[in-house]
Design a binder for these strands. Structure first.
Lengths: 136, 136
DNA sequence: ATTCGTTATGTTATGTCATAACACATCCCG
DNA sequence: CGGGATGTGTTATGACATAACATAACGAAT
């Protein structure tokens, strides 16, 4: 676990294993990929992964990418407060950049307020080519 | 077909049936719900639905909601040009409001440009309570 | 230290969403 | 009318996610 994430309970063994796999990956991973990566640690069933992911997401350590059905470790020191985090997904190399831009989040909150929509959460995912792949 | 959508080829029978089901629904529908709705019209297999949806999305008549694994008819007269449409999904009544706010799209394009990210498409989905459900 | 509620885990089975592969039909255009 | 492109039907399979139930570990209060 990184020193930056100090605001959540200690992780259980399963949670820690799942987090480490995600944190060590360049690209998002599906739950079943995580399962395969942890068979050597005794994992046998999808629920072992999904239950750990559920907790890790609640702690703000992991995000789900809805457009990929996949998961990533949070790249920010204190993510739990970022209700409107966004992700830029490179369609060539698969890497994901997480951003928490107030310039993007603010107009969304403003729109919701003007509409009378009580905002509980958001999914913001961009697809395209990252700088490296565009140049390559 | 609505008079507003005049910029795409005529729909085939399957495409038209799928579009009508979506257009007549208050809330997003899964592909399998659409399939069930069309069994009386002779639909037997998921592919019949998915293939129609694929075309309808290409025409800009239908959107996919990634966070729900479901589909909605487009609510705008000319949606094909809206690369950064967003959706507000009510978690109580299930209704979806589509929006195409330049105030939200512009800062996303700006961020992408500053990052050197070539934007190909985006998913913007908000979860919460719509005005009606908040008041109810 | 024992009881008891809460949380985590293991396991099997099932449910839900989506596509591969192949065959056949239809349409349109030259 | 011939031939490529597109649409359709069907079977089978792959990929993602959860229900239901049993057992175990933990932690606080007595």
């Amino acid at each position: 676990m990184t020193a930056a994430h100090v605001h959540h309970p200690d992780l259980t063994r399963n949670q820690s294993l799942v987090y480490d796999v995600l944190n060590g990956s360049d690209a998002p991973l599906s739950a079943y990929s995580i399962l395969d990566a942890l068979r050597g640690e005794g994992f046998r069933a999808p629920l072992q992964v999904y239950r750990a992911l559920e907790k890790l997401r609640a702690y703000g350590l992991v995000h789900r990418l809805e457009s990929l059905n996949a998961f990533v470790a949070c790249s920010h020191p204190d993510c739990a407060g970022h209700e409107t985090a966004g992700f830029a997904i490179c369609e060539k190399c698969g890497k994901v950049s997480e951003f928490a831009e107030e310039r993007i989040a603010a107009p969304i909150r403003d729109w919701a307020k003007a509409e009378g929509f009580v905002l509980a959460g958001s999914t913001i995912e961009l697809r395209g080519l990252c700088r490296d792949c565009r140049e390559g």
